[in-house]
């Protein structure tokens, strides 16, 4: 089976059963990861998982993230958060995919911290359309302490988990 280095199939080949299973598992892991840490404010493992999936599974991870967002919309009442999710996680998946050649734990730790720092600002975009730029700015600024905690907690999570999880996945990839 011909594959790119990032694990994604070349363009003219269709997804096979393994790809579908992998995408399903990615969605399940994202849902489980999100739920498991939902009681801890500003600590989440979704950013870490999306990064790992982008590095290991390439293009497939973006599809999995889009499905994850769809599942979230089905589970939870549709509100402002759903709209933020529509772009915030796919955007992260695309950015991580674009940087997928990076293999340093330091790069990904800083990358995830940066995304955490910008999280509130990215979410605030929705408020510009619903409540105006003034409310959006006020909401963003009120949340800055939480964005800082979010960024630092992302950094720690990736720093601790990146290498061991990467190792497990590379074992899986080399035993097709």
């Amino acid at each position: 089976m011909e594959q790119h280095e990032d694990g994604s199939r070349i363009a003219n080949q269709k997804w096979n059963t393994r790809d579908l299973a992998e995408m399903g598992m990615m969605v399940a892991a994202l849902e489980a990861g999100k739920l498991a840490l939902s009681s801890l404010p500003n600590v989440e493992i979704v950013t870490f998982l999306i990064i790992m999936f982008a590095v290991i599974y390439g293009l497939k991870s973006i599809i999995a993230v889009v499905v994850f967002v769809g599942v979230e919309c089905l589970i939870w009442p549709v509100n402002l958060w759903s709209i933020m999710y529509l772009y915030i996680w796919p955007l992260l998946a695309v950015l991580a995919y674009l940087c997928r050649r990076q293999s340093s734990v330091w790069f990904w730790s800083i990358f995830s911290a940066l995304y955490g720092f910008c999280f509130g600002g990215l979410c605030a975009i929705v408020y510009i359309f619903t409540s105006g730029i003034h409310t959006a700015a006020a909401w963003w600024i009120a949340g800055i302490p939480f964005d800082l905690i979010h960024g630092f907690s992302n950094f720690v999570i990736v720093m601790v988990l990146y290498r061991p999880i990467r190792k497990v996945f590379s074992y899986d990839q080399s035993h097709h």
Partner: peptide
Amino acid sequence: GGKGILIAAVAAVVV
């Protein structure tokens, strides 16, 4: 990778 880390680190500090 080194360059990437540097860019990301500078961006993080600025933010």
